[in-house]
Structures are given as C-alpha cells and as structure tokens.
C-alpha cells in the first residue's frame, strides 16, 4: 500500500516536472528563433529581392525592371549588370575611394576614440557617467542637423576660416567645404561614439591588476599597454572598427552635404542609380557588390578571432 502510493506520488511529480521542462524548452526555442526570424524577414528576404532585381534589365515601366523568370518559370535574367560594373572603371574607382575614405575615418575614430574610451574607463564612477552622457548626447540632435552644423563651421567664411584669419595664420579662406577632407571630418565626427562605446565596454571590464602585474615583471607603462591593454581590448577595437567602417562605407548624407560634386562615393552612386537614372537593376548590383565587399572581410576576421580563442593543444 505504502510503496504503491509513494510510486504514484513520484509519478505525478515526474510528469509535472516533464511538462515544465517541455514549456521551458519551447520558450528557449522561441527565444533563439526570434532573432533568426527577424533576420530572415528584414534582411534575407530583401536581399533576395535585391539579388533578383540585380539580374534583370531596366525598362521604362512600373516596376522599372524586367522579370527574372518568364511566364514558363524559366530563368530569364543575366549577369550583365555585374559585367558592366566590372568593365566600367568608374565603379571600381568609386568602390576603392569609398574603402579608403571609410578606412581613414575608422583609423581617425580609433586614434581619437581609444584615448577617450580609456580615459572614461579609468575615471571615477561619477565623472564616468557624466562623460558617457556627453558621448551619447549628440544623438539627441538630428544627425542631419549636426552635419549641417559642420557646413557652417567649414564654410569659406565659416567659424574655422574666420578664426584662422583672425589669428592671422591665413590671409585667404582655405577651401574646406566640398572637399574629401570635409567628408573625412564629417565621417569621423559622426561615427566616433560608435567607436568609443564598445571600446569603453571592454576597457572598463579589464582587470587593472594585469597592467600592474606586467609592470611588476619588468614592463614599462608603454610596454604594458601594448602587451596587455591593447590585445585585451581587441574585441572592442574590432567591434568599434566594424561599427564605424560599415556605415561609413555606404554613407550617403555626409558626402552629399559636405563633399564636392566630383566626390564620388559608392553610397552616392547607389542613390543616383536608383533615383536619378532609375536603373534599379544596376543599382541593385552595386548594392550586392557593396555587401560582398563588407561581408567577406568580416567573415575572415571572425574566423581569425575564433582561431585565436581556440585552446592551444
């Protein structure tokens, strides 16, 4: 009697535990699936559409491109657009200019952002939150307005030129606006917070004992920085660089407002192909190539990172 009862009780608890376990599993799956679903709907699906358009031909119609598959469902597209991208030197030059410009802005952001992030991470708690607030504060103002503000600063008779002339360093205003330099400054300014925040996150977590240990073992302050701080900040450096480089690469507004008419960057070409030339298929091809240009180095970087974190055996 008693053992049977006990078995019954045990059975019940086991079942209850089982269902709890199952709902637990279900929720876990939902949680994991959610970001994938998001990526599928808002990234992969649009990407497929763009890819499809890039294989079509432009026509004057609504929508302004031919069908990639004909009435029988056979493939009717072509890689003509991509071939054109490869043959017309303009595109290669534009891509290259964009890479160089984005890379330069990234390096400037790193050079400015690292000491700033380092300083914030090492300051005491109250100043730290104030400094972080100051870094994020520009986001309260529209991005467009902030870029316009740079126009006011860099005009021929803007703040910078007036100041330099007043001091007497220059006699004639120097051309700042509508140059590559202006784009460069605009990019670095706009994306600096995206460099500082991930850098700050890694530097703030770092154990200060490690630097003292390195110094104790014979490393000078500078040596300890390069041996310990820099490699341990790597994840933050990589994250920051990607967060700056990727959007800087496709940036449209900054080159449009601050750069000259001849300052062709890929974001601008993309915009023009879509909205000025109404050549959707070619624009799509430009976008696909841009994406590949960005994705390939990231994949390589991540593989490198994974290899680094693998245990040495």
């Amino acid at each position: 009697m008693a053992p049977a009862q006990r078995r019954g009780v045990a059975g019940v608890t086991l079942m209850a535990g089982d269902t709890a376990f199952r709902t637990d599993q279900l929720w876990r799956r939902v949680a994991v699936a959610a970001p994938y679903l998001w990526l599928l709907v808002f990234f992969l699906a649009p990407f497929a559409i763009i890819l499809k358009i890039s294989l079509a031909d432009p026509i004057i119609a609504q929508p302004p491109f031919t069908q990639t598959f004909d009435a029988e469902g056979d493939f009717a597209g072509s890689a003509d657009n991509f071939r054109f991208l490869l043959t017309d030197k303009l595109y290669a030059v534009t891509y290259l200019r964009s890479v160089v410009m984005a890379a330069a802005a990234t390096i400037l952001c790193l050079a400015l952002g690292f000491p700033m992030a380092y300083g914030i991470a090492r300051s005491d708690a109250t100043t730290r939150s104030l400094l972080l607030l100051l870094i994020v504060l520009p986001f309260w103002i529209s991005f467009l307005l902030r870029v316009y503000a740079w126009m006011g600063l860099m005009n021929n008779y803007g703040v910078i030129n007036n100041l330099l002339m007043w001091i007497g360093i220059i006699e004639q205003p120097i051309q700042l606006m509508y140059t590559d330099f202006a784009i460069f400054v605009g990019l670095a300014y706009s994306y600096l917070p995206f460099m500082i925040l991930p850098l700050y996150a890694t530097l703030e977590r770092m154990d200060l004992d490690l630097i003292e240990a390195a110094q104790d073992l014979g490393a000078s302050r500078t040596r300890a920085f390069w041996d310990i701080t820099w490699p341990l900040a790597r994840p933050g450096i990589i994250a920051g660089c990607l967060l700056v480089f990727i959007p800087a690469m496709g940036e449209y507004v900054i080159p449009y407002l601050l750069g000259g008419p001849e300052a062709l960057l890929i974001g601008r070409v993309l915009f023009d192909e879509f909205f000025v030339n109404r050549d959707w298929p070619l624009a799509s091809a430009v976008a696909i190539v841009l994406l590949l240009l960005l994705v390939v180095p990231i994949v390589l970087l991540q593989r490198n990172q994974a290899k680094r974190e693998e245990p040495a055996t």
């Binding site: 490690l210 003292e212 240990a213 104790d216 490393a219 310990i228 490699p231 341990l232």
Partner: peptide, 27 residues
C-alpha cells in the same frame, strides 16, 4: 615597479588571460 628587484603575486593572481601558461611565466 619595473626596475625593482621585487616581484609580486597578486591576490587576484592577475594571470594574463590572452597568454598560455608558459607565456605568462616567460613574460
């Protein structure tokens, strides 16, 4: 610190997380 004939074992051990045991010791 780096010029003193003194070494320290930290309470947190402060082992460099990005280096192997041998590299830590060799540092």
């Amino acid at each position: 610190p780096y010029q003193r004939p003194v070494n320290m074992m930290f309470q947190s051990y402060a082992i460099f997380p990005h280096m192997s045991v041998a590299k830590n010791v060799a540092y």
